[in-house]
Design a binder for these strands. Structure first.
Lengths: 128, 128
DNA sequence: GGGTTATTGATAACCGTCTATCAAAAACAG
DNA sequence: CTGTTTTTGATAGACGGTTATCAATAACCC
């Protein structure tokens, strides 16, 4: 069960490494297809799972949407979702004021913050 | 197209009004079935949609889980999800420090905070 | 180069959530 | 009470994301 370095995996890793924002499997396929036309969506999912298990990728789970993936080890931060183009953007840092108050007996292990709104492309001021 | 007051709707409203935490359609069905044994899941979904459109209910969308519903008009607050029993709990107030910094051009309209961990029932200290 | 074996691509199948369908039941108005 | 119209329950189906299947392909090692 030795791991092999295939062209597919190299390209997928490269696309993710250069991505400007967390990508969904479909977005990743679209970008990688440019360099390897008949790359299959199954390979995308398989490779994403592999890279996540290796600890190289971090999944971002979202309500009602495909999981996005970004490079792991970026430090604690949160995300912005555009309600128009549905793209996810990375934000700098954490905005939590303090350890949030929970009822007695509750053990908080992590938290997740998602901002909603319009991104720079989709905001009314921008040229759409 | 006059709206009718049915036993089903009365019971569903009553269960939601008395709920200790946001409920999924399945949880709601389980509770309401006690008072009306062959209530159907379709009626649950239909009534949830109705009550949400009326503004009486607020949906809570979650990654990879069924939407939960709670009474609307409770004021700004957030939620806790237990990673063991998957139940959702309501938290008091908001823990955001300040308007979060976003890249120029981004328009934030709302935000969402979800804490993860173990609830009082599932935490190791509690009698499970 | 050649054999072995991991990997791929295409696609069917899966899964959980939710919606459509439709005959039967029930609420309402008069 | 009775006719009309909404609502219900059961279930099939839609839907989007993801995984399984399997023959064909391609890494890797000697």
């Amino acid at each position: 069960m030795n791991r092999r370095n295939t062209r597919q995996r190299e390209i997928i890793r490269a696309v993710l490494a250069q991505a400007d924002r967390p990508l969904s499997p479909a977005e990743l396929l679209a970008r990688a297809s440019g360099q390897l036309p008949n790359l299959g969506i199954a390979t995308i999912y398989r490779t994403l799972r592999l890279l996540t298990e290796e600890g190289w990728l971090a999944p971002i789970e979202l309500p009602g949407e495909a999981t996005r993936y970004e490079l792991a080890g970026k430090g604690h931060h949160h995300h912005f979702r555009c309600r128009r183009c549905r793209r996810i953007f990375e934000l700098a840092g954490c905005v939590l004021r303090h350890r949030p108050p929970t009822p007695p007996g509750f053990a908080v292990e992590s938290h997740e913050v998602i901002l909603h709104g319009l991104c720079a492309h989709c905001a009314p001021s921008a040229t759409c």
